[in-house]
């Protein structure tokens, strides 16, 4: 257990962080919680939602309260990989010789907002793969390590919209979570109006240092999971596979590919972060249930029949959560 940060302290610090974010972000509690959980779990998050819901503002606010470096890439169809990771440029050294010098791209940051990521071509999207997985970038024969914490927050428009390219499965799997930005309620809209159209703009202050964040990320890894809770997680993931005996009727009929092992890793890590939010040292069934949908929804791929009938992946996962027995009692 960390000497500098106890579990009770962590809960208080996280609550303080959420409170500060809430000064600028109205609503989106699930979204904020998911992003923070992903941050604690050292993952990347994919946020889907129509434009104008405050996704970019949320990421900006997060960087502000965490006092992290922030950069944003607006993905467009003509965006090239070098525009993301950087490129070799010819420069003149002190001796007057011309040499290639690496010019870092916007990926060299701590919080990277990849806005409308599905508007770029798959080739450009793939430029983020190594950075997301290895936290490093290789240009030529030289590798460049990214500064920790490094987190990619990608937003995408619903794929039904024009000018979008679906993300390849390999890249989707790199995202720890896929969160859905929902429309705010009437009360939240009213608050948003008051907050954003007045004379004064809401400001936030950094409430957590980078070291504190890294300590929290380490503490997250120390949250334990009991055997029967782990079995529950395993059963959930196995149930997403149509050919597994644990599969539910919906998954048997409509699922083409179930969740990968990375899916259960994501679910457990997010559940640990959720447990930390409540100041718990252990994962509960409820943590897993809360983590299951955002961690698995982009990893469970429907077959043609499922797509044709408009089956929602979340409905499949909800059925799995209902059918999977909790303990033996």
């Amino acid at each position: 257990m960390s000497e500098s940060l106890d579990i009770a302290d962590a809960r208080g610090r996280l609550a303080e962080l959420r409170h500060e974010i809430g000064k600028r972000i109205i609503g989106h509690d699930d979204l904020v919680e998911g992003i923070l959980a992903c941050l604690l779990a050292s993952g990347h998050v994919l946020i889907e939602g129509v434009p104008g819901l405050g996704k970019t503002l949320l990421v900006k606010t997060l960087s502000a309260v965490l006092d992290l470096e922030f950069s944003r890439i607006q993905f467009t169809p003509d965006l090239m990989p070098a525009d993301i990771i950087g490129t070799q440029m010819v420069a003149q050294d002190d001796d007057g010789n011309r040499v290639f010098k690496f010019q870092q791209g916007p990926v060299f940051t701590q919080l990277l907002l990849a806005d409308e990521i599905n508007r770029a071509t798959p080739k450009t999207q793939s430029a983020l793969l190594e950075a997301m997985e290895e936290h490093r970038v290789t240009v030529g024969r030289t590798g460049h390590v990214l500064e920790e914490p490094f987190m990619v927050l990608a937003t995408q428009n619903p794929i039904e919209m024009e000018g979008t390219y679906p993300l390849p499965e390999a890249q989707l799997d790199r995202f720890l979570l896929k969160l859905i930005a929902k429309y705010p309620s009437a009360a939240e809209l009213s608050k948003i109006i008051d907050l954003t159209t007045g004379e004064r703009e809401a400001t936030v202050q950094p409430v957590m240092t980078c070291d504190e964040l890294n300590a929290l990320r380490a503490l997250t890894r120390q949250v334990v999971i009991a055997g029967h809770v782990k079995d529950f997680a395993v059963q959930i993931v196995l149930a997403t596979h149509a050919d597994n005996e644990a599969a539910t009727p919906l998954s048997k009929r409509f699922v083409r590919h179930g969740a990968s092992p990375r899916g259960i890793q994501s679910m457990i890590l997010i559940a640990k972060a959720y447990a930390l939010f409540e100041g718990r040292l252990n994962i509960s069934f409820d943590d897993l249930k809360s983590a299951a949908v955002p961690a698995l929804r982009h990893r469970v791929l429907l077959n043609f029949e499922g797509e044709a009938e408009g089956i929602d992946v979340e409905a499949v996962i909800d059925e799995i959560l209902r059918e999977t027995p909790v303990g033996d009692g």
């Binding site: 334990v224 999971i225 009991a226 055997g227 029967h228 809770v229 447990a275 409540e278 718990r280 040292l281 252990n282 994962i283 509960s284 069934f285 409820d286 943590d287 909790v326 303990g327 033996d328 009692g329």
Partner: peptide, 24 residues
């Protein structure tokens, strides 16, 4: 006893604190 702890967790909404502690 572990099953008892699991059931108590569910019945009392203990978020698996009891069963996890007992198992460890």
């Amino acid at each position: 006893e572990l099953q008892v702890a699991i059931q108590a967790d569910v019945a009392l909404k203990l978020k698996q604190r009891l069963s996890t502690a007992w198992e460890f």
